[in-house]
């Protein structure tokens, strides 16, 4: 059976409020006037995700307001972590709000000492040219025993255990179509 996102988010919301309240033996609470700070995530949009660090696969809820991540915490419905997170998982917010994040394409020319900002279009065209030139120049049709091998050993790919399955699959498909054999990633090391 298929669960639409809308449905599960409703369930998730109800559980956060209901299950936690219930398990703690709370009656439905009346906010106490004395502490006046409003709950910051109250009107935020919630999205479920899975933690990008280790492979336990903990569920997280990302709260977004005005297109910005304002809070991340464990997904209480997730059967593995049941709302909990370690220090890394708890720090996800700082991946979203981080002035060191790359936001533009950078290029380093041969013998240059600095990065230079370039456009996607320029970079992608150059990359495609480099792949083609290197592949064509270093193409091996047959090995020394006369076996057809149809490969190039001049291009290597790395990554990525941090990619999604769909990305891994396309990466694998692309690399094989290009005739690459130096295909490796963190799973080996």
């Amino acid at each position: 059976m298929e669960f639409s996102r809308r449905t599960f988010l409703k369930i998730s919301g109800a559980t956060t409020a209901g299950a936690i309240l219930g398990s703690l033996g709370f009656n439905l609470l009346k906010p106490k006037a004395a502490y006046a700070q409003p709950l910051k995530i109250k009107y935020a949009k919630e999205t479920t995700t899975i933690c990008p660090y280790c492979a336990v696969g903990c569920g997280q809820i990302v709260s977004v307001k005005d297109g910005k991540v304002i809070n991340v915490e464990g997904d209480p419905d997730h059967p593995i972590n049941q709302g909990s997170l370690c220090s890394k998982g708890s720090a996800l917010y700082q991946i979203a709000n981080n002035d060191r994040r790359l936001s533009k394409v950078q290029y380093r020319a041969a013998y240059a000492t600095e990065w230079k900002e370039v456009s996607w279009d320029w970079a992608l065209s150059k990359i495609a040219e480099k792949i083609k030139t290197t592949r064509d120049k270093n193409w091996v049709t047959k090995d020394k025993n006369g076996n057809v091998v149809n490969r190039t050993e001049a291009i290597a790919t790395f990554g990525g255990a941090a990619l999604d399955n769909e990305e891994c699959y396309l990466y694998s498909k692309m690399a094989r179509a290009l005739g690459l054999v130096y295909i490796e990633h963190c799973a080996r090391i």
Binding site: R5, K45, T47, T48, T49, I50, C51, P52, C54, A55, V56, G57, G59, Q60, V62, V64, G67, K68, V69, I80, L92, I95, A96, R101, L102, S103, K104, V105, Q106, Y107, R108, W115, A123, K126, I127, D164, N165, E166, E167
Partner: peptide, 29 residues
């Protein structure tokens, strides 16, 4: 060429945990 990539919650797709569970995640921002 250093290309700026999206983080886990900035795209949609599945990842597989150590227990072989393929879990779908959604784009938040």
């Amino acid at each position: 060429f250093l290309l700026p990539a999206a983080a886990s919650f900035e795209k949609e797709g599945s990842i597989t945990n150590s227990g072989r569970w393929a879990q779908w995640r959604y784009q938040a921002v």
